[in-house]
Design a protein around this nucleic acid. Structure first.
Lengths: 209, 209
DNA sequence: AATAAAAATGGACAATCATCCATTTCACGG
DNA sequence: CCGTGAAATGGATGATTGTCCATTTTTATT
């Protein structure tokens, strides 16, 4: 049975409206400037809705951070699905997804860094303000292990390569945040691949697709 | 003559107390939580001091960001002075300074990311929330140009290497912010050098000092 | 249509915010 | 040790904040 009522649909839509409006408001005004009034004005909903759906403002902010994390991992999976199964293909997919405009765009990046800026002082944000968490790290390590299998200390090399690649991607996001006009997606990608290619000369070339 | 009065010394000390207290408060409570009351309580000064020395809270925050930037570059120069003059020595100095505990410590890093989180929404912060700005970039490019001089397209290689190195350092800071317990300064340094060594095999080895 | 339950509204509320300024305290030359 | 101008104080003020809840509107059921 499980008939979905009109109310339930509406409720879900309103929830999403609030989450979206929150991300946009945080992106534009920062966490400090994301007041309840600004959020509900943008969502075109009434004041009480935040309390109704999320109990309080903090839970709404946490849900907004979680939603961004979900979108990130969904994008990774999309890219992974349409990629080959060998290690270098998977690496290329992960990196391309990370730098794709679905997630590397002004709204998302602003909001990410805004949440991250409050991560330490606001414990509840910390969990969701780390996109590149252990799950992603494991994907990278797994892929690099295949590339490193004939090298000296392959495990250490794979771990270092994964650690460094994540740091590189992180740095490219910061670059995008701080120099949005000068930033070039393909340049960023080329540089990441250039560094990786130097570590694994056999498996990559310096051309960018 | 320029005799410095007791008043002037006191005034300067109070200014610095406010800046320090602001950085500490931002580090602990974020920008959103850094209220005037919290700042002046920590500084052990009276309410009106902010208005007296900085006109308003915003100017105080900007000065705090500027001060952190000054400390960063002072640290770079300290390391550069005690380093050799060839390219690889200078690179090693820049990277070691960036990852040194004088600036890569909980208080500073928290505050950096807090300011950066508000950079886009609060234009006045943006200028000072980018540690690794053009001045540092030029130092890296200059050094890498020497290493790249016998390679193909040395200028492009030097620019990419500088861009990537800055991104790597940026990523290591984010790693420190989000995983302070797991973070290891020497590991971070080793990984950065490992990536650079792969790009310039002649000039670096993988051992860390 | 009528009725009950659920959802949504938006004004009211106390708490907190940054700023201001009348008052007090201090430093210093005479 | 006094007098003067600058420095420092901290309570008052109005604006803004997140939360709450009495009322209205919408939805589902009879």
């Amino acid at each position: 049975m499980s008939v979905i009522s009109g109310n339930q649909i509406k409720k879900k839509r309103h929830r999403q409206q609030l989450v979206d409006a929150t991300i946009e408001t945080v992106s534009e005004f920062g966490i400090a400037g994301a007041s309840v009034t600004r959020i509900i004005t943008r969502a075109k909903l009434s004041r009480g809705m935040i309390h109704l759906h999320f109990d309080n403002k903090e839970h709404l902010l946490i849900e907004a951070a979680r939603h961004m994390s979900d979108v990130y991992y969904a994008q990774l999976e999309t890219f992974l699905r349409s990629a080959g199964t060998n290690a270098s293909d998977r690496l290329r997919a992960l990196i391309s997804a990370d730098l794709s405009d679905k997630i590397l765009n002004p709204k998302t990046v602003n909001a990410w860094f805004a949440f991250r800026g409050e991560a330490r002082s606001h414990n509840s944000f910390a969990k969701h303000s780390d996109t590149r968490d252990d799950a992603l790290r494991q994907m990278f390590i797994q892929a690099y292990r295949e590339l490193a299998k004939d090298r000296n200390e392959p495990d250490a090399l794979a771990r270092d390569a994964a650690h460094g690649t994540i740091a590189l991607l992180e740095g490219m996001w910061a670059d995008y945040l701080l120099h949005p006009d000068a930033f070039n997606r393909n340049t960023a990608k080329r540089i990441v691949f250039r560094f990786i290619s130097a570590l694994f000369p056999v498996n990559f070339d310096t051309t960018v697709n």
